[in-house]
Design a protein around this nucleic acid. Sequence first.
DNA 1: AATGAATGAGCGTTCATTCAT
DNA 2: CATGAATGAACGCTCATTCAT
Lengths: 202, 202, 202, 202
Amino acid sequence: MTLRRPRTKPPEERRDELMNAAQRLFLEQGVGPTSIEQITDGADVAKGTFYLHFASKDDVLLALRERFIREFLNGIKMAIARRPDQDWKGKLAAWAKAGIAGYLDAAALHDIVFHEYQPPSPKDHSDNVVIVYLAGLLEAGAAAGAWSVDDPRFTATFLFHGLHGVVHDALAKRKPVARSPLVAKLQQACFRAVGLRTVHYN
Amino acid sequence: MTLRRPRTKPPEERRDELMNAAQRLFLEQGVGPTSIEQITDGADVAKGTFYLHFASKDDVLLALRERFIREFLNGIKMAIARRPDQDWKGKLAAWAKAGIAGYLDAAALHDIVFHEYQPPSPKDHSDNVVIVYLAGLLEAGAAAGAWSVDDPRFTATFLFHGLHGVVHDALAKRKPVARSPLVAKLQQACFRAVGLRTVHYN
Amino acid sequence: MTLRRPRTKPPEERRDELMNAAQRLFLEQGVGPTSIEQITDGADVAKGTFYLHFASKDDVLLALRERFIREFLNGIKMAIARRPDQDWKGKLAAWAKAGIAGYLDAAALHDIVFHEYQPPSPKDHSDNVVIVYLAGLLEAGAAAGAWSVDDPRFTATFLFHGLHGVVHDALAKRKPVARSPLVAKLQQACFRAVGLRTVHYN
Amino acid sequence: MTLRRPRTKPPEERRDELMNAAQRLFLEQGVGPTSIEQITDGADVAKGTFYLHFASKDDVLLALRERFIREFLNGIKMAIARRPDQDWKGKLAAWAKAGIAGYLDAAALHDIVFHEYQPPSPKDHSDNVVIVYLAGLLEAGAAAGAWSVDDPRFTATFLFHGLHGVVHDALAKRKPVARSPLVAKLQQACFRAVGLRTVHYN
DNA sequence: AATGAATGAGCGTTCATTCAT
DNA sequence: CATGAATGAACGCTCATTCAT
């Protein structure tokens, strides 16, 4: 006569709950130290249920990576799409702002999802889609004469990791992060990186 | 009657051999998958001997991290020291060059040593000494009027991670890395980041 | 909208399909390694359906054993029934021939069904009906003065296991088994075992 | 202050204790149902210790099989060696007697060790050494004119399995087994199988 | 009668760590 | 200092079985 939730849920939902539990635990304790059982406890299902949705621990990690990238890139794309077509500087600024936003919400997740556990096949040095996207933006702006960039891929990589680093550093201080000065500084850095004068901008 | 090396060695030496074996294995297979026994096998000692020199697996990792930072920072300091006292731009260029050199030799090690296994206490967000050192350089140069940097810590973090990212990206492509174009681009990026005109420089 | 076979079948039929699938899998991989799910997949039904027809894995095994014995004994009985009533030697020869036929078709099954998984209750040393039947034949022949057998049960057991052994040995060599020399040798062995002169016989 | 046995023992001894515990448990419950932990509990060591001596559960089973065969064959060889060189009938009788003795002590073990768990490589249909040995004896006796055997391998196989069967049957009845009538009957069966008159013999 | 998502006990195996020698 | 046998907690994963639909 115990209270019984319906035992079966749509697979999507179960899968999501498991991913969410895994993500939370990975963030709290790291991937290695998190056991499957903790994940299933966190999702309020039995241990075996995990294996109805994922083949292994690495498999959830993969799913989390894909979800993270999808959402992060999406945030950036949408922010940029809001700018008028020829406003290159605005687009770059939007990139910086959306990138910081994406990371502030998910910096630790980024680490987990990108650093722990090697790719299953070592040739999976598939390009980081976020970098590729930014390189495209930089190249288009350069072609339009909006700025000067010799090697868009290099600069995109540089900016991407610079962004990552400064957000991390901000978070590591464990004070609440003041977001807008951070955005402003990063935008300045982006402008400088593409050879623009750096009057502050929003 | 078997040939017997002396069974005891100075502790320093044993410790180093263990660290070297651990470093090699961590690079080859990652930290998690490496067992203590593999490390002691690699150092040609018995399993128990490990615990005469390190308290735990995390403890070697810590020691490796410290050694890595010491050597990396040392390389940068020496390169910079070779520049005349007031040649700020040259110092920044030297930083970029030495940083790339340090990473190209040790990028994978850097990852291992910085990313795997969380700090034992989460407050160990002790400052990255490499960043602190660069921030000092940036601040001094700004004070001397050599360039303009609003927030040296921010810029140092940005540059440090940008450096890290582009070296990684270069290595990930698994072609032999052409070092000097990489150095040139990074130097340009550094100059732009501090607001300098970017004529190429070595 | 998918094409749908009728989902319900007469229980007999479903049960048989499950038994057949189980038998095939047990033979291919052994009992232990075969999962219920493989059985239900093989029978093209859902996992739970298994438990509508059998109480457990051991339960199918029991059913397979019973089916095997029934069919095996039946083959022997029919072969013997074809001999004239007083042709004892012919009956014994028929026993040997039918026994070999029965085993060559089902030697592996015999093993599975007799050796794997102990009887649920250890007192289930219920008599092997094949042996009991043969003992009856031996006794009747002895009473009729056709041959001499001191202990029919002993001799029947001996012949039964001897038969089993030589068929196995023949199969284990993994060449196609030449059936008729095997039959001839076994018949000779049977005749000798009951004290008959051993002129070959078919 | 708990009573402490010496923690280390000669590896031979530990290995034997583990094998003995495994054998006892395999006999009591079968191989599959016996867990490693039960084995180590039985040998009074920790679970991990098992893996210092055996690579897996199958590995102990293999070791038990080898030990069983070694001891069984040895018993037969020694019994036969006690007979004068030309006493073929005596040798065959000795085979029967020693075989029964060997099985009565170890019939169940024989099953475990020969039937459960397939050989690791399926081509390991390496000949049963006991059968090969008996076939040699039969052939030698036939060559010496002591008896008539058309196919020594066949007859050896037949006798070996016949022996196995009657011992099993005797044990299955779960009354104390009267050994000497069994021996006498088996000897008679052996004599008949090689075409000898069957006067009882010891 | 039939389904298949969910359960959870159980197992083989690994490995960091201890400690008697 | 050094050894390596021994420990035992912990983990990933499997799978027989249940039960709401």
